[in-house]
């Protein structure tokens, strides 16, 4: 079994633990699992509809950036050693947008998916990056704002360095599994 197939199997097993394990646990605890599932799932459509304006804004802007040739120009400045690792300018844009906005970075991943294809290396790498980083600046603003703290000390540094390590780990893991 190749490393790609093993990753797929492990991923599927983890998904099953959530998908089957949680309803079984719920049923054992006396939860009406079907009704509860439906009640929670109703929010799914709202989330998808709410995200439309963000995706339109980002996909149009990044799409223009790509079709104008600006993306290629930007990519030509990226050292070829990084390009060999699959770090193209759209991946860089994703990593840079991620700490600022969750919806905007999801939009950039959407653009990567629609221009490179959903099974492309870039789409997988982008997804793993999105999954291992956080909207650091937004979270810090909300949480420190709630208790009116202005001297944030090292919270932002630690969060941003963790995001950078998340990106490096994503590139490494994707290289090993999907490379």
């Amino acid at each position: 079994m190749s490393i790609n197939e093993s990753a797929s199997t492990i991923s599927n097993l983890i998904l099953l633990v959530f998908l089957v394990g949680i309803p079984v646990y719920g049923a054992l605890k006396g939860v009406k699992v079907y009704e509860t599932f439906v009640e929670g799932a109703k929010q799914g459509f709202d989330i998808a509809v709410n995200i439309i304006p963000y995706l339109v804004a980002i996909l149009v802007a990044v799409g223009m950036f790509r079709s104008s040739g600006a993306m290629d120009i930007l990519t030509s400045f990226i050292p070829s050693s990084l390009k060999d690792l699959g770090i193209t300018s759209d991946i860089v844009a994703l990593a840079l947008t991620r700490p600022l906005s969750g919806a905007a970075s999801l939009g950039i991943l959407g653009e990567i998916v629609s221009s490179h294809g959903a099974d492309s290396y870039q789409a997988k790498l982008g997804s793993v990056i999105l999954g291992s980083t956080e909207t650091t600046l937004y979270v810090v603003a909300v949480y420190f704002g709630a208790v009116s703290i202005t001297k944030t000390k090292y919270a932002i540094h630690a969060g941003l360095v963790a995001d950078l390590i998340g990106v490096i780990a994503s590139v490494t893991v994707c290289r090993i599994i999907f490379g």
Binding site: N4, I14, K124, V128, S132, A169, S170, V173, F178
Partner: peptide
């Protein structure tokens, strides 16, 4: 398929 790599990262 991205679940496992994402958990590691």
């Amino acid at each position: 398929i991205i679940i496992f790599p994402a958990i590691i990262a």
